[in-house]
Amino acid sequence: MRPISHVDRVLDAAFSPSAAAHSRLAASWRRSAHKHGLDPASKRDVARVTQNCLKHRRASLDTFMTVAAPRLDSLYALVGQSGCGVFLSDAKGVILDQRLSDADAPTFDHWGLCNGADWSEAQEGTNGIGTCLTEGRRLIIHRDEHFFACNTGMSCIDAPIYGSDGTIVAALDVSSARADQTEAFNRLIAAQVAQTARAIEEAHFRATFPTARIVVAESEDAEAATLLAIDSDDLVVGATREARRVFGMESSAALTPRPAADILGREDGPTGFEKAERAAVVRAIARADGNISQAARQLGIGRATLYRRMKRLGLNET
């Protein structure tokens, strides 16, 4: 009996009425065939944007690219010696930056893994970058899990990177063309890819809110960045995607500023102006090392007035 070919296996799953419901991979194959009209047997060249278009795409993500660069270097230092390349795409699947050895460059370029190449699912079917962006999740597309038969020599490990508005801004990809790349090794790389994606997301978030106080919150997802940006008025003005989920805020787009106390659920106590006044008095006393006269001068009030306010706010001299 003749072994079933990759093309036949993909088409069988893509046209099966039930396969997509039971497998994310089959669902991606089905999108590739039905939604995008792709043929797994096709051997067409990978689509590439023009140099001007690539320059424009990079410029639109200038800050992001700046904070991502050293973290791409660190990731490549870990995986480069094993024949892997590191690639960063934008949210549309166009590769903007890469790290790879001179020896591996011809192989990756032959396969279309290079700056300016469009690896969206609409162009290349099921693949690491495109499917990661489509499904918004970390994944591994190992060899014959690719849609196109011509891509089955690759292993691709990817993680999405979210911007400060909660939407996907990029995909981080580590790809290998080595025939001996195992699924177990892929899982080890996947952990490092996820960690690097988080580091880039955190650095970009901090760069987006350079004057804000950044609060790191807890989440059950250890590989997600859970950060809040709080301004000088104690308003939450920014939140990462995971922080938005944890605190029940809008999942994407501009964040409606709201008091940090409302978000963080602080204990009951003084509210409104009374709470702000209490905080100001406590800070002044702390700065004065408990010297009430000095604290009063910092606040621009008399010593007796400060004592009266302390009594009203429930504060004693200690």
Rank of each mutant, 00 (worst) to 15 (best):
D73R: 07
D73G: 04
S74L: 14
S74P: 06
L75N: 07
A77Y: 01
A77V: 01
A77H: 01
A77T: 11
G80N: 15
G80M: 05
Q81N: 15
G83C: 06
C84G: 06
C84L: 06
V86W: 00
V86M: 00
F87K: 15
F87P: 10
F87R: 07
L88I: 02
D90N: 15
G93T: 15
G93V: 15
I95S: 01
I95R: 02
L96G: 00
D97W: 00
R99Y: 00
R99N: 02
L100M: 15
S101R: 13
D102A: 10
D102L: 05
A103I: 07
A103Q: 13
D104H: 07
A105Y: 14
P106V: 07
T107L: 10
F108L: 10
D109C: 12
H110C: 07
H110Q: 08
W111H: 05
L113N: 10
C114Y: 08
N115C: 08
A117E: 05
D118V: 15
W119M: 07
E121N: 07
E121M: 07
E121S: 10
A122H: 05
Q123A: 14
E124K: 08
G125L: 09
G125A: 13
T126R: 11
N127P: 06
N127E: 01
N127T: 11
G128K: 13
G128N: 02
G130P: 09
T131E: 13
T131G: 10
T131P: 02
T131V: 05
L133E: 04
G136N: 01
R137V: 01
R138A: 10
I141R: 09
I141E: 01
H142R: 13
H142T: 08
R143I: 08
D144P: 03
D144Q: 04
D144E: 03
D144N: 12
H146Y: 00
H146A: 02
H146T: 01
F147M: 00
N151E: 12
G153T: 02
M154N: 14
M154L: 15
S155Y: 05
C156W: 08
I157R: 06
